[in-house]
């Protein structure tokens, strides 16, 4: 596929800094879930490197001006992975880090699934399969306003079994939303087991291409890979981009990696201790 590309080179220093940041985000996720006593570590940890790149390198945003019209938009379609979103938002300065320890508690600003009242969250989510449509609406609004900002949306792999995703996929290419970039956190597991066994998604690249998208496949834990994929998406004209990121569910905590049980269970005290040691 030919397209003009002005690939930025990302310094090894930037990559190193982002790696460190990602480790810090993972620590916050583990601590936050341990305190909450419930929640979803697996998909939060698998998308941590992507989310870190978005919030600390790729996106144009102002944590203290949450309604700044020129901001790039982010929407988390796989809403159950909000711990990683809350962690990058807190780390960016959208709200005090202490809020993280109130996750899922009565009266908290950090609900069990993303909520529009949380600073930095434009539209909440939780019911799967809806986020690509929301991002599409945001992208259409930006085009209508001739605004230069971009729209990013994080999708889960189990989630794209929902039909609405494909309705939105069709519409986004129909309306040539090149300001829209989706990222698929392809960690290969859903609640009931392996995605390939529950409801196979393959051939995935061909599916998205057939729906008119530009597809980039990357290692979702390789910071340089992630950054260059986002650069490529920014430069592409006339079609939306999906970055299919192969990831490891529970990435960064040995006993959580590829363990389906940690899709939706918080670590115990002992597990938390071990996880934080591994992430030190």
């Amino acid at each position: 596929m030919k397209h003009s590309r002005t690939r930025k080179t990302h310094s090894s220093e930037e990559v190193k800094k982002l790696k460190e940041k990602a480790k810090q985000i993972r620590r916050l996720i583990v601590q936050m879930l341990a305190k909450a006593g419930s929640g979803h570590p697996g998909g939060s940890l698998s998308s941590t490197d992507i989310m870190t790149c978005l919030y600390f390198s790729v996106m144009n945003h102002e944590p203290k001006k949450t309604k700044w019209p020129g901001r790039d938009r982010f929407h988390m379609s796989k809403g159950h992975c909000c711990p990683v979103w809350y962690a990058v938002l807190a780390e960016s300065g959208y709200f005090p880090k202490e809020w993280l320890w109130t996750l899922r508690k009565l009266g908290s600003n950090l609900q069990g699934h993303p909520d529009w009242r949380t600073p930095g969250v434009d539209v909440g989510s939780g019911s799967l399969g809806q986020g690509l449509s929301i991002a599409l609406g945001m992208a259409l609004a930006a085009k209508l306003d001739k605004a230069g900002h971009r729209v990013y949306v994080l999708l889960g792999d189990g989630e794209i079994q929902e039909g609405q995703i494909w309705e939105a996929a069709m519409a986004a290419s129909h309306y040539r939303c090149d300001n829209l970039c989706a990222v698929l956190d392809y960690n290969g597991y859903q609640i009931d087991g392996k995605v390939s066994e529950i409801m196979n998604l393959e051939p995935l690249v061909e599916k998205w291409r057939a729906f008119g998208w530009h597809v980039v496949t990357i290692d979702g834990h390789d910071i340089a890979d992630i950054l260059s994929a986002f650069d490529q998406a920014k430069d592409l004209k006339d079609k939306p981009t999906i970055i299919i990121a192969r990831t490891i569910k529970g990435k960064g905590v040995s006993f959580m990696e590829n363990v389906v049980d940690f899709h939706g269970r918080a670590p115990t005290e002992a597990e938390t201790k071990q996880a934080l040691e591994e992430l030190s």
């Binding site: 809806q130 449509s133 929301i134 609406g137 945001m138 992208a139 609004a141 209508l144 309705e167």
Partner: peptide
């Protein structure tokens, strides 16, 4: 330019309307 026919896809239409509204439009 301000009209979006979403095809036979009501769920996506509602979500897209939501995204437009979240960007300041009256959808």
């Amino acid at each position: 330019e301000r009209f979006f026919n979403m095809g036979v896809a009501e769920q996506n239409m509602m979500g897209t309307a939501a995204g437009l509204a979240a960007s300041g439009k009256i959808a």
